[in-house]
C-alpha cells in the first residue's frame, strides 16, 4: 500500500493568512504527489466540512479533512506553522496542521489507518515530538512509526 505520508507531503514552514490559504498549500502538495486529481474540487469538499464546524482543536491543532471523489489514495499532509493559522479553536491558532484526505469509497483498511492516525493526534507525546522534529524526513518517519507501527 502507498505510504500515508512522505517527506514531500510535509511543509515545516507553513504560512497562510487564513486557514483556506494554509489548507490550499497542503492540498497543493498532495496534488503534486499525484494523490489528489482536482485540487479545487477537493478544497471545496474540505471547505464544506469546515463549514459544518471548524476543525481546530485546543492545543494548537487543525485537522481539515474530507472524504472526496478527487482523492486517489488516503493521504496525510502535515504543516508546521511558526505564526499559527486560525482553524477556529477556542484557544487560538494552530501550529500543527494535518490535512487528511480520504477517497470517497475508501475500503475499511484505509479507513482503519486514518482512524489510528486520528487516535495518535490526541497523544501529548506525539504532538511534542512533531513540534521538535528537525526535518521533514524525521516527521514522516515519526508518523509512519506511530500510526502504522513501521
Amino acid at each position: 500500500m502507498t505510504d500515508l505520508i512522505n517527506a514531500d507531503l510535509i511543509d515545516l514552514d507553513l504560512t497562510g493568512d487564513d486557514h483556506h490559504e494554509a489548507t490550499a498549500k497542503l492540498a497543493g502538495l498532495m496534488a503534486e504527489a499525484g494523490r489528489v486529481t482536482d485540487v479545487e474540487g477537493f478544497l471545496a469538499d474540505v471547505r464544506a466540512r469546515e463549514e459544518q464546524m471548524p476543525t481546530g482543536l485546543e492545543g494548537g491543532i487543525g485537522i481539515p479533512h474530507a472524504r472526496s471523489a478527487h482523492v486517489t489514495v488516503p493521504t496525510l499532509a502535515f504543516g508546521r506553522s511558526k505564526e499559527g493559522v486560525d482553524y477556529g479553536a477556542a484557544d487560538g491558532p494552530a501550529d500543527l496542521v494535518f490535512l487528511i484526505a480520504a477517497p470517497e469509497g475508501g475500503g475499511s483498511e484505509h479507513m482503519t489507518i486514518l482512524a489510528s492516525l486520528a487516535r495518535r493526534l490526541v497523544h501529548k507525546e506525539f504532538k511534542t515530538a512533531l513540534r521538535s522534529a528537525p526535518d521533514a524526513d524525521a516527521v514522516a518517519t515519526l508518523i509512519r512509526k506511530e500510526v502504522l507501527g513501521q
Partner: peptide, 17 residues
C-alpha cells in the same frame, strides 16, 4: 462525527485516556 475519519477516533482515544 459527520465525516467519520478524524474526530470520531480522536474523541474515542481522548475518552479512553
Amino acid at each position: 462525527c459527520p465525516t467519520g475519519i478524524a474526530h470520531t477516533y480522536m474523541a474515542a482515544e481522548a475518552l479512553e485516556q
